[in-house]
Simulated assay, not measured.
Amino acid sequence: MRKASGKTKTEAKAKLKENLRDLEDGHAIAPHRYTVAEAVQDWLQFGLSGRDESTIETKRILAEKHVIPALGARKLRNLSADDVDRWLAQKAEEVSTRTLQELRSILKRTITRAQARDKVKRNVVMLCELPKGRPGRPSKAMNLVQAEAVLNAAESAAPWLRAYVVLSLLTGARTEELRELTWSLVDLRGRPAENGMPEIPPCIMVWHSVRAGGDTKTSKSRRTLQLPQRCIVALETLKKRQDVARKAAGDDWQDNDLVFATRTGTKLDAGNVRREFRRVVTRAGLVGKEWTPREMRHSFVSLLSADGVPLENIARLVGHAGGSAVTEKVYRQQIRPVIQEGATAMDRIFPTAPQGGTGEP
């Protein structure tokens, strides 16, 4: 038996006809009381399997702050494209375009999941255009004078922080790639050319990242980078100091083989890295709170471009999946014309290689 009810006979008949159409089309009859909030919570609980914990937490915060309060009480079957358009227009006045994209994606994926379970016929979000949100915080890059000041300020920092700043700025590695770097993927000696085999210079193998599964952002992000001399010196100092810390920690030491680790060998927290990095930036004469670790990567691109390194080479060095097109799109304001490669260029830009920092672990 199929039943339907409404405040009037006409409304009840319309709902009954809708139920019969669903039955004829092979659709299950979803509960009329199933709300957007229930659909979102279902997606948060079951639709993010395999994702990094920080990603899940970010999605949850966005959903509970922006999606559920505005649309959660709506019956999912009754949600219209007009409802979504009005919601997106309202949010465009409050958040950046990037955040607006995230919010639209959460709602779209929520309804896609519900649609696959016959709880709604169509995904109305697919009918809605994304408006332009508020301008977000623009990423920026350091010029040569600022970068040199930061490198000098890092010399008095703890060895791990000094090495972190130097590698970030002189190799362009992502902060999540450096936090996952292990000593087994660091070659500080290299190998001379012999027996027909090519020379292997000192290098780091950027093969992992602090992401779900430990993979890099894309397959092309998996790369091996020659180390500038300044990086070699910083890493050698860090390795010696870490050996001392290992002995001091004794049984408390956790041997994770991490290059950038705490006093007991565990992973560094992203928030702590950001805070310590800003202290270095402040000592360099800049406003610490205006800079983030990821902008060392932007600075790497900017400095190489200003020195004449070809865009194609920069794209390969930073591991962009779409090659120079992605590099130009993401770092457009930092890109300038064209000529050589990473470590060689950085040794030329920053020729001085200090013989060890003075900071404590």
Rank of each mutant, 00 (worst) to 15 (best):
D215M: 11
Q229E: 04
E236M: 05
K220L: 10
G250F: 15
Q254L: 05
K240M: 03
S219V: 15
P228K: 01
K240D: 04
R230V: 04
R223L: 05
R222H: 12
V206Q: 00
L235G: 14
M205P: 00
T224H: 02
T224P: 05
D215N: 13
V206R: 00
L235W: 14
G213E: 08
A212Y: 13
W253S: 00
K217T: 06
G213S: 09
D251G: 05
V210C: 03
V244E: 02
V233Y: 09
H208W: 07
H208G: 04
K239L: 12
R246L: 11
A248G: 08
M205E: 06
C231L: 07
D215S: 10
H208F: 06
T224L: 05
S221R: 02
W253C: 00
V210M: 05
Q242S: 04
D251S: 11
K247E: 08
L235E: 12
Q226S: 11
I204E: 00
Q242Y: 03
V244W: 01
K220R: 12
N256P: 10
K217L: 04
T224C: 07
Q254N: 07
V233K: 09
T224N: 07
P228W: 01
R230W: 04
K239A: 14
L227N: 02
P228C: 02
R211C: 07
I204H: 02
M205I: 02
W207T: 12
R246F: 13
D252L: 13
N256K: 14
Q242V: 02
L225A: 11
K220S: 12
A234Y: 13
G213D: 10
D252E: 09
R230K: 02
Q242L: 11
D251E: 13
G213Q: 13
V244Y: 04
N256R: 15
K220N: 15
L235Q: 15
T237N: 03
V206C: 01
G214Y: 09
Q229K: 03
K247P: 01
N256A: 09
Q242R: 09
Q226Y: 06
R246D: 11
A249C: 10
A245M: 06
K217C: 02
D255L: 10
S221E: 03
W207P: 00
R246N: 12
W253F: 12
T216I: 03
A248S: 08
L235H: 15
S221V: 06
W253K: 00
T224V: 11
L235K: 15
Q254M: 08
R246P: 11
A248I: 10
D255N: 14
S219Q: 13
Q254C: 06
A248Q: 06
L238D: 13
A212D: 14
K239G: 07
A249K: 10
W253H: 00
R222C: 05
A248D: 10
K220T: 11
R246T: 14
S219T: 15
A245R: 07
L225V: 14
L238S: 14
R211N: 11
V233A: 14
A249R: 07
A245G: 04
I232L: 09
A245K: 04
D215K: 15
K239Y: 15
Q226A: 08
D255C: 05
N256G: 06
Q229V: 01
K220Y: 12
L238F: 15
N256Q: 12
R223H: 04
N256F: 13
P228Q: 01
